[in-house]
């Protein structure tokens, strides 16, 4: 039982980190950024390159090295997110919604096959792996890697909530989510704030990508696709556009899958999670938190 919960939490932590970016972007410009999953993949590859460069320059302890790599990667994928918004989305922000969506799908393919062109189709082996054994808790085997994932995701989410709730930029984001035109009239720099949202969302996805590389030890150019879809599902379950909804949805989806596998078997995992998506869309399209919290973001 505990084993099933821990399995679900660690997978859910990944979903939550990626779902946050999905949800924030949707909250502020009503765009489903289908290229978001590929930013996660990009994060894994950026981490892979940075880690390679770093270990050849200086020898750091693994833990410190990983933290450093995660931070650098977050900055770089965040930058990639901003660039993506500036180049691909901003020029057509006022075009029909479908144009944005198609651009997002196109970007997704461009990122996937661009990375494949550079690094090849073979999965790459991540040079550092968190692999410090496991602990036993009430009969459940919990690997250190899983604990680290849950902790890192937790810390990042707390920092993000504080940022959105307490800072000026956070308030600007919430204001734009409510009414972009009014926010502009109040003197908020809308373009800058949207860039910031893309930066934060992409940085979180990048961090998740590095974590995935460090935990599972392998990365490949298609790794972002399925997690993108799952994160989208998580965002919908939690209430898309809602920050806490994305966190809750990610963890909920991870747990649902984990219990689904335990009860029904592995072949039912995706059937089960997408069935949940359909049920939510039918009976509660606003998600778990969507109805209660009026204020988006």
């Amino acid at each position: 039982m505990i084993q099933v919960i821990v399995n679900g939490l660690s997978v859910g932590a990944f979903y939550a980190l990626v779902a946050l970016g999905y949800s924030m972007v949707y909250g502020i410009i009503k765009l489903l950024n289908f290229a978001h999953g590929d930013i996660y993949m990009l994060g894994a590859y950026v981490g892979f390159v940075v880690l390679g460069a770093l270990t050849s320059w200086l020898s750091l302890p693994t833990a410190l090295g990983l933290v450093l790599v995660t931070l650098v990667t977050m900055a770089l994928t965040g930058g990639a997110g901003v660039l993506m918004e500036r180049v691909a989305y901003r020029p057509i922000r006022h075009a029909p919604r479908l144009s944005l969506l198609i651009t997002a799908v196109g970007l997704s393919f461009a990122l996937e096959y661009g990375v494949r062109q550079i690094f090849g189709p073979k999965p790459s082996h991540f040079p550092v792996q968190i692999d410090a054994g496991s602990v036993n808790l009430f009969g459940a085997t919990i690997t250190t890697a899983r604990i680290i994932v849950i902790l890192v995701a937790g810390v990042l989410m707390v920092v993000l909530s504080l940022f959105v709730a307490k800072t000026r930029q956070g308030r600007a984001m919430r204001a734009i989510a409510l009414d972009a035109k009014a926010a502009r009239l109040m003197g908020i720099d809308v373009d800058r704030t949207i860039s910031l949202v893309f930066f934060i969302g992409s940085a979180l996805a990048g961090a998740a990508g590095v974590l995935a590389g460090a935990v599972y030890g392998t990365i490949d150019f298609l790794m972002g696709f399925i997690i993108g879809i799952k994160a989208f599902t998580a965002a919908v379950i939690g209430g898309i556009g809602n920050l806490y909804g994305a966190m809750l949805g990610g963890v909920a989806l991870g747990l649902l899958e984990s219990f689904g596998v335990a009860w029904l078997g592995g072949q039912w995992r995706d059937v089960f999670s997408f069935l949940c998506l359909i049920l939510f869309l039918t009976f509660r399209p606003t998600g778990i938190l969507g109805g209660r919290v009026v204020e988006r973001m």
């Binding site: 099933v4 399995n7 660690s10 997978v11 899983r146 392998t218 899958e257 995992r269």
Partner: peptide
């Protein structure tokens, strides 16, 4: 396409 097979490993 997944990377986490913790559930199957548990099984």
């Amino acid at each position: 396409a997944e990377k986490d097979f913790g559930s199957v490993a548990t099984a």
